[in-house]
């Protein structure tokens, strides 16, 4: 059995208009990597939304980061501070990875 290493998975779901702002924050705060995917559709406080709406700014995107716990926490807290006035989902969970050095 190969060894697994414990990491934190940080998921940030934000409006399309905020993606670049959050990306800049992650770069500033030292994230070594992340993956951004455009979400398809959903519903929240502002009602239903979908990706093919008139402007990408009104869609949603998921930003996925896997990092050591201290880094992931720092990124999560900085993101939460940045988005004080905006709707966002910031989720932290435990994951296990094969390649310890990658994160």
């Amino acid at each position: 059995m190969r060894q697994l290493f414990r990491k934190k998975r940080l998921e940030i779901i934000v409006e399309g208009a905020l993606v670049e702002t959050v990306r800049a924050l992650l770069d500033r705060e030292g994230a070594t990597g992340y993956t951004i995917s455009s979400a398809s559709s959903g519903r929240g406080d502002a009602g239903r939304w979908q990706r093919d709406d008139i402007t990408p700014a009104l869609g949603r995107a998921t930003i996925l980061v896997v990092a050591n716990e201290d880094v992931a926490r720092r990124l999560a807290e900085a993101t939460d501070d940045l988005l004080t006035d905006h709707a966002a989902m910031i989720l932290l969970s435990d994951v296990e990875v094969f390649r310890d050095a990658d994160y």
Binding site: G16, A46, D53, T55, A57, D85, H86, A87
Partner: peptide, 26 residues
């Protein structure tokens, strides 16, 4: 406008309801 301004408004005025301004405009 219904393309450039909604993006700016989501950044600058998150309290405003996009269901109102985009629908009215578009």
């Amino acid at each position: 406008s219904y393309i450039a301004v909604p993006a700016a408004m989501r950044l600058a005025l998150p309290q405003a309801n996009p269901g109102v301004y985009v629908t009215l405009s578009l």
